[in-house]
Design a protein around this nucleic acid. Sequence first.
DNA 1: CAGTGGTCTAGACCACTCC
DNA 2: GAGTGGTCTAGACCACTGT
Lengths: 262, 262
Amino acid sequence: MVTGSEADAVAGAGAGAGALYRRVAADLREAIAAGEYGSGGRLPAEQALAAHYGVSRGTIRQALAALRANGLVTSRRGTRRVVLGTTRVQSFSELVSFTSWARSLGEEPGGRVDRIERRPATAYEREQLRLPADGEVILVLRARTLSGQPVMVERSVYPLWVGELVARIPADAVSHTEPLQEQGVVFADADHTIDLAAADADDARLLGCDLAAPLLRERRRSTDPSGAPLECSEDRYMPGTVAFTVHNSLAGSALTRRQAAP
Amino acid sequence: MVTGSEADAVAGAGAGAGALYRRVAADLREAIAAGEYGSGGRLPAEQALAAHYGVSRGTIRQALAALRANGLVTSRRGTRRVVLGTTRVQSFSELVSFTSWARSLGEEPGGRVDRIERRPATAYEREQLRLPADGEVILVLRARTLSGQPVMVERSVYPLWVGELVARIPADAVSHTEPLQEQGVVFADADHTIDLAAADADDARLLGCDLAAPLLRERRRSTDPSGAPLECSEDRYMPGTVAFTVHNSLAGSALTRRQAAP
DNA sequence: CAGTGGTCTAGACCACTCC
DNA sequence: GAGTGGTCTAGACCACTGT
């Protein structure tokens, strides 16, 4: 883009995501993915973009900030922005939901609940889910598959009000987040911790691996838009099935290296 | 804060990081870490903060955007921001540099170069480092320790102009990024891919583990402020020594789940 | 030096949450 | 309906990069 007639690129993007800057960002993302500036190429100046899209410089900067956070472009005083990569960026829902991630890859996701328990929360769970001393939780143990192959074991711990909704979902439902969404449970923020774990008896049985076999572990704690904890989950992936990627920069890191918990 | 006399909090922060919004952000971070709003508590309104700090609402919003990116607070229309966590946020340099990370934990970092090679770049390296078809690279294989214990093996591949600087650093230097920094090589952006790998002969020898033992792998590609690739590295950690954490949200994810490369 | 992005301000309107 | 954050505008000045 930035070659068309005038302020049409935004309108041309059709029923965009509402906010102006999001539509501009989407348009720029497309242009970058299409290689219009090349890898390592320079973007037009903010002022030029503002004129092209017919918006103010502030709006352009909001759009560019989004691209930057995604690691698509650099940003420094004195020079035009430079294209860093053309990687397709994953949406938050593709991250939180195994199902929507798998579908976006053209794979056939599957899931089967192995076990549901209601029990008192451990100290760790009380802290993560902000529960009182006598709080209870619902644990859901579930095997996830990709085109029939077992790939991951998910242990999700929910506060009762969420867990009771989850418990009503059929055991072989492909997605849990979608029915939850329909009932007003929205995932908005998540913290992830990634390391390595050894398969226990459940993992070995559900994944078909040896006991104590190494697995890639992702622990996650999700909250809704109001900041209320929704879930505290531990997922264990078969090696070679997934990798996690993160971008970060001087201007703001979301990634952290930590000493492993004892 | 937000209880002191007037617009003194910013001035009181002393020789802050230059930009006004950074000083405001740092002050708010401190206040949150000190538990002034509690976990799950509500922040003052933007307007109140603007009045308190004696700055415009735009500046306050810039500061809050930083806190949000770090996963410290939520953000939604209609309600005050809510404190999500009080986690100390790691700076970018603590992420790129094993040395500065270890020091911030009070551990004693160490490093020893095992081997340096100059050789033609592989196709993958040419792409990552944006080198021509006949490009060469310098590979540095290095063992990293924490208080004497071997913890990680680092395989860094540099373009010649960086590699030649690295090759001049003493084999037992604790830090490589610090001397590079002094010579004007600045790391500004990085992409990380985290998964699992099996120890090869070098890993087993340097870490004292078995051949094919499972290790946590972090592949990284770093660029300088102008977007020029500086490094393409593969680090392998002993299990139980580190974990990686990431925050992400509906408003912008830097984290991605990917199918493992073949 | 000209060009460019970084920072800051002031004001406006809207969409949403919660009482 | 009052309060709050989200979006957008217009303009200003500064710090830095490159020629």
